[in-house]
Amino acid sequence: MLNPTQAPEAGPVSAAAEAPLPGGSEITKARSLGQDAWRELRSNPIFWVSAVLLVLFLLMAAVPSLFTSTDPGHADLRNHYLGKPEWGHFFQPDWFGYNGQGQSVYARTIYGARASVIIGFCVTLGVTLVGGVIGMFAGYFGGLLDTLLSRLTDIFFGIPLLLGGMVLLQAFTHRTIWTVVLALATFGWMPLARVMRGAVITQKQADFVTAARALGAGTTRILLRHILPNTLAPVIVVATIALGGFVSTEATLSYLGIGLQSTVSWGVDISDAQNVLRDAPHVLLVPASFLSLTVLSFILLGDAVRDAFDPKLR
């Protein structure tokens, strides 16, 4: 394969500069860092495993009727009390057996995904916004504002997420998905604030930010155009991993009885199942496995995304 003549013969300066980038067609196209990360992700099997699982869980949450036609609330105590799973009956109500009230464990698990997924996503969205803004202001403006915001972050860090959530939720007599979201977001934004603050401080010192300041760019432009896009990668990674944590915390709260009420949820089902653990372990194990698979998928996805964005691995 012949190398194309790289530098056209012309004047000393401009021609000298003008060697087209070697490397052929794929480099002649514009490739952003995001596109590079996507290329990296595509070749990572872990990404695909976690992505497929997550799509499945999202589908369950969005259209549970796709997976089962059984009503999760339908109880048939006489016929199905703690019915054993029929592992061969795929997608049938008795696939994973029945619980202590004669409800289909399969149907309940499918419908339980919705609470977990909604809470996971909403809390993550909330903490990313709250933590991101706090971290960005603390990191960019520094000084007294940073000191105050950082100490505030430290104080909240002192409160365990679960404990804080419990105390706050006690105040509500009627608890819906949204109260749980509020409680978890209130005590869960700190890691995001920290990551954002660190990333902003790093980017703030970058030469291209100095260059923008030298051009006379205002604070808004510097923050939104130069700093924010360069801090997204670490924030996305931390947020993805945190999402898993929120899902499991929600389940824990529901298990403890101070989370969701009268909603189908993995946490509530796990909580109910502990009474019959000896007689029918499947009642507990099935929602528990779905829960840990969801959490695991998010953590794996976060890892894969981090690897893709890490330029050192390129």
Binding site: S32, L33, D207, F208, A211, A212, G216, R225, H226, P229
Partner: peptide, 20 residues
């Protein structure tokens, strides 16, 4: 600022990697 411009030392950090 319009009339006084600057060229930086490190060409790898002085351009925003997320901008064309």
């Amino acid at each position: 600022r319009r009339n006084i411009q600057m060229v930086f030392q490190d060409p790898y950090t002085s351009l925003n990697p997320r901008m064309t």
